[in-house]
Amino acid sequence: MSKITRTGSNQILSSAVEYHNFVYLAGITADDLSQDITGQTRQVVAKINALLEANGTDTTRLLQAQIWLKDIRDRDAMNKVWVEWLGDAGRPARACVQANMADPRHLVEIMITACK
């Protein structure tokens, strides 16, 4: 039977799950909710970097991204940070939609699937 590794687990979810050299990240949100979309997106991608590194991978191995924005009009500002963050790394398959957030102060949430 293949091993499943869960990290950052609580009663509701795990921050990351690894299975067969695939790494699935939970939806990642910012900690400082007083920030605008640029600040929150920077926090989110920094947290994603840390989770990817902790699981032995990086942005060059991204497969898929799901992005939820509180306001779709923030897409261009979020994309500026996104493009800067990815640099020359390969682009994942991606969806970006507007959504009602669990906490109205959250402006962006990003969920990633990567491989090792």
Rank of each mutant, 00 (worst) to 15 (best):
E84A: 13
D88Q: 08
N21E: 13
S2M: 08
D74I: 03
E109I: 12
V17E: 10
Q98W: 00
M78F: 15
A30G: 01
G8T: 07
I37F: 05
K47Y: 11
G27I: 07
D58W: 11
A46E: 14
M1G: 00
K80S: 09
A16V: 06
M111S: 14
N49V: 06
G87F: 02
N49E: 11
Y24N: 08
A26G: 04
A46R: 12
I12G: 02
L51F: 05
Q98P: 03
M101N: 01
T59I: 15
I37G: 03
A26W: 00
A16L: 04
N10T: 03
T59L: 15
A16F: 04
T5G: 00
N49L: 07
A102D: 09
I67C: 14
V17G: 06
V81D: 01
E18C: 05
T29W: 07
R6Y: 14
V44E: 08
A65K: 04
D74W: 05
L33H: 02
R105E: 07
I110E: 00
E53R: 12
L62P: 04
A114W: 02
N79C: 01
D71V: 10
Y24H: 14
G27D: 15
T113Y: 00
Q40G: 04
V97C: 03
I112P: 02
I48P: 01
A99V: 03
S34E: 11
A30E: 01
R42V: 12
R105L: 04
H20A: 13
V17K: 05
A99W: 05
L86T: 06
R75E: 15
D31R: 14
A65T: 07
G90N: 13
S15I: 05
T60A: 14
Y24D: 07
I28H: 02
W82M: 15
L25N: 08
I4M: 04
M111L: 13
M1Y: 01
I28K: 05
V81F: 03
D88H: 02
T57W: 06
W85I: 10
V45C: 06
C96G: 01
W68F: 11
Q66I: 10
S14L: 07
H20R: 15
Q66N: 13
R75H: 10
R94L: 08
Q98Y: 01
L33P: 01
W85M: 09
V81S: 04
T59H: 15
T60C: 08
A46C: 02
A89D: 01
N79K: 11
L107M: 07
Q43V: 08
D71K: 10
G90H: 12
E109D: 15
N79S: 09
A46L: 11
H106Q: 15
G90C: 09
R91P: 01
V17T: 12
R94M: 07
R73V: 09
G27K: 10
R61Q: 13
N21S: 12
V83L: 13
M101S: 00
Q40D: 04
C96A: 06
Q43L: 09
